[in-house]
Amino acid sequence: MIPSIPQPPAFRVAYGAYVTLFFLYLIAPLVVVAAFAFNDSLFPSLPWNGFTLDWFFGDRQPRLGLFHDHPLLRSIGVSAFVAVWVSVLSVAAGTCNAFLFERETFPFRDLLYVLMLAPLVIPGVILGISILVFSNTVINSVDAVLGVEIDALRPGLLLVVLGQFAFLTTITTLVISARLRKFDVSLEEAASNLGATRMTAIRTVTIPYLKPALVGAGIVAFLMSFENFNTTLMLVGSDAPLTITMYDRLREGSTPVLNAVSLLLMVVSGVLGLISIFVQRDRTAP
């Protein structure tokens, strides 16, 4: 079953049809979400009542558009705030981990490597509840010993950032390690021979080489943080990120303003995705 082996035409047609159906299945949910953002109706469902931009720009109830829906806009802000912190922290930690695993030798290195991968196989809900439980234990212990209540460790944005950081650091570590592995160490040695200290050599030679991976890992972390639901659900306090707000509205049944937000998300993540592919493409360069 390769092009060089002749196949009956009926088989070729059937195979082509199957693949076409598959791509329809893949695309259908996204197309309907996007299309109903423009339907002139109070519900995201048929019949099609004509084209409108109210779900983006409408300024009064019940046709409150995305750009006037303050709770939604605020939760986008919360998500962006969390995502920026998570991506900065996880890229920084991922870079340290990459240097540790690619450059250093130390006892129990393999064991630590497997532990580093563990967050990949822990379901997000469980990672969330374990951090919730532990932060509560820390609050109680500190309260019992010192008589101080650390309210920052109650469910809220700090815990959400920490929870997402806990599994995204594995991903950033893997992305950055993959590029560091291809780095020719003799370039750093050349810098040292020319009088650079180790830190200067890393800063001026290695880090610029790693830049595509750093940017790529940052974008992936940002997107995954923005879209995370499972871990966030368990750790969220009163400031709800976008996914939590959307989930609540989805269950109540909402106007097509949700379609408008979804379309915005698709566009933004599509653009960021293209940027990350574009940035990482020069991976083959020396």
Partner: peptide, 23 residues
Amino acid sequence: TPFWVSELVRTFGWMILLRETGI
């Protein structure tokens, strides 16, 4: 491509397709 989009949005798409008043 579908996986650059949040799982919530994808599920929302299926709700629009499959619900009683859906496509």
